[in-house]
Design a protein around this nucleic acid. Structure first.
Lengths: 218, 218, 218, 218
DNA sequence: AATGAATGAGTCTTCATTCAT
DNA sequence: GATGAATGAAGACTCATTCAT
């Protein structure tokens, strides 16, 4: 994970160029990405072999390199892809909600729903994203930051509207929000029990909104 | 990170056998462990070479294997060691505090103080611990769980004494507490700015205790 | 360079079949050959990719294999082609010269002129031809030998007419002649200075004809 | 053959440090080098496998990399080593000879003797040294140049003493001398007949000194 | 005929681990 | 106990070649 990440040319492909060839290429790209996420979720990135990914995707080893520059970039593309679509969904869903509390609750639910629906992706995000400080630093500059900013916008909006306490540091509040979601998901993927993630949304929102204390802030 | 973790024979060495030889052995063991944490924090576990650790510790490559069974076990021992002493400190400090809110505040502060004082250790815990779902699952069975239980005890104690809301899921509350700390520390190690961690303790406790909302829980 | 060289079917194509199709085929064959010589001269045979040659020739990778059996055979065909036309020119030019010294001088000049005019070809001949003892052995059986025999004929002709010393080994004399030309050309392609090759012809002929010594052979 | 050549640290090892360990290291280095020359002479550099060289030297594959940085550098070290000792011998032998003709004859004989005694080395020098224009250019800057300068010194010395014709270009004369030797050796390694190289020395010197012509230079 | 996406065999190199000293 | 030279298994990646279109 030492090379800089560069978005695959794919990201900027003109949608106009979607002839049969481009569509087939797109499909194979997706298939390799999905296979990679599965394999990495099962064995961890370091223990995953490029040949494992290739054979699960039903292509030859060399074919991988027609779509990705290196093993590292498969992981980066997978994380990037997941985040990109996740953030797009989040923006869409939140745009129709008026109050900050509603937005916060919606975001929490969305986070749990998306990851709860795709355990391999959740495993990769919760584990491999943290693999290396350097990688995380770089990735977080690009995608994670934009997710955290979405959260901060909600907090600030609530503070401005008076829904949320104006005395709080928004940065700290975001850390609590993201950290809580992060840990709930991590606990879920590590748990041997098989439970649903989404139903926890309201409990989590409740703690974040009102705290654990029975009293009031001094 | 594929082998099962087995505590180094060292862990159970009779403290009675502490002649000069044993003391020297202990010192070298510590030196290797500290070197390992530094090297891994700098380069990540996968990119760290056993020979890097050896030369930083001032011993020959082969000597490492007189103290550890494998490269994996160096990482495990380092994490294990850090957690063990951390939990001992936590128990000591919390035992003299009577109320749940005080304990929670103390725990938050302790967490930030300990990691804030040892950045390499924080880097390793925040990144390498997550490296592999399998590894994390195993480790969390052993040490992390005991830390999370300490947190749960505080939550439950607060609920029983009426300080904390009894309607909350203690498991969710713990996730929020641990997740918040976790994310604050991760943000710190990734930040390019150089700030102190411990001063954030009260803000974090405040959010956790009273929530972000200006209103009351329904 | 492990396969035996077999002249491309092309070599024996009936010139009668020279319709438009055949002419187009011939042109593309030439274009690929010329591209191959350029690419190989620039990067060396081992570092030249078939796809480099194809794209420089403006054809698809697969098209190469409609004209050549393998990458090795492209190199062989290029060398073969160069030598064949070179030897034809040599025979033509020498046939109108009566004396051995004149022929030797003409051959030296021709050698330097032809290679001096086509540096990429010179590079390939001086470097890639020597790449492998096995390949050189085979090639020299086929084309180089015929060039060396042309040289030997000149030497013998001179010895018979009394122009050249009869006591010399003709084989040694040929080695000196070819070796001198070979090294002058190699020095030229390696030189950073940019000079003309042909003007050196008379100096070289002079050394070969009369030696470096100021005295007479004993 | 793309990396720059750097003389192995070995070249500059203090001879004082020749304990048993250093001696053993030196021996193994020599053994690997000799095995490499043999294997490369048999199969050509491109077709030689590092594992072939290792097994012929009786060491593990990985051991090669304790002595050489890469496969390329094995070849470079072999050529470098051969040239270095060759030039040392040449200087020694020529230093005791007073006249230019004698020196030229001695050099020709030495060249043929040394290569005639070690056919694998001759094969490697005659074929692999020419493999790539870039490599040859670099190598010739370092070692070959110093050999050619030795030749040029002899020519100039002869011209100054009046033994050799002063009107000749010394550069051309050197090309004829080196080229002749080069080609005689190449013919020898390619020949299927098994003959001695050294006995050809006087014939070659004869041609170089007095030329092929029966007449006198005009 | 021409294409170029796909193939998969092949190998250099790394590095955790061992063991003779 | 300590050393560090030696080991050799393992895998990412390349690229000549094929073949369905």
């Amino acid at each position: 994970l030492t090379q800089r990440y560069e978005p695959a040319a794919h990201d900027f492909e003109a949608p106009l160029d979607s002839g049969d060839a481009a569509k087939s290429r797109e499909l194979k790209y997706r298939r390799i990405l999905a296979s990679a996420v599965e394999v990495i979720a099962e064995k961890g990135f370091a223990s995953s072999r490029v040949s494992d990914i290739a054979s699960r995707a039903g292509v030859a080893d060399g074919t991988i390199y027609l779509y990705f520059k290196s093993k590292d970039q498969i992981l980066m593309a997978a994380l990037d892809d997941a985040f990109t679509s996740f953030i797009r969904m989040a923006h869409e869903r939140l745009s129709v909600i008026g109050d900050a509390e509603g937005k916060l609750r919606a975001l929490v639910r969305l986070h749990l729903e998306v990851l709860g629906r795709n355990k391999p992706l959740a495993v990769v995000l919760q584990t491999e994203l943290r693999q290396s400080a350097k990688f995380l630093a770089e990735f977080s500059q690009r995608r994670l930051r934009s997710y955290l900013e979405l959260m901060r916008d909600i907090i600030r909006e609530g503070q401005e509207s008076g829904e949320f306490r104006g005395t709080l540091s928004d940065r700290i509040a975001v850390s609590c929000l993201f950290g809580a979601l992060d840990d709930v998901v991590t606990a879920w993927i590590l748990s041997e029990r098989d439970y649903e993630l989404a139903p926890l949304a309201d409990s989590i929102s409740d703690v974040l909104l009102f705290g654990v204390s029975n009293g009031r802030a001094s």
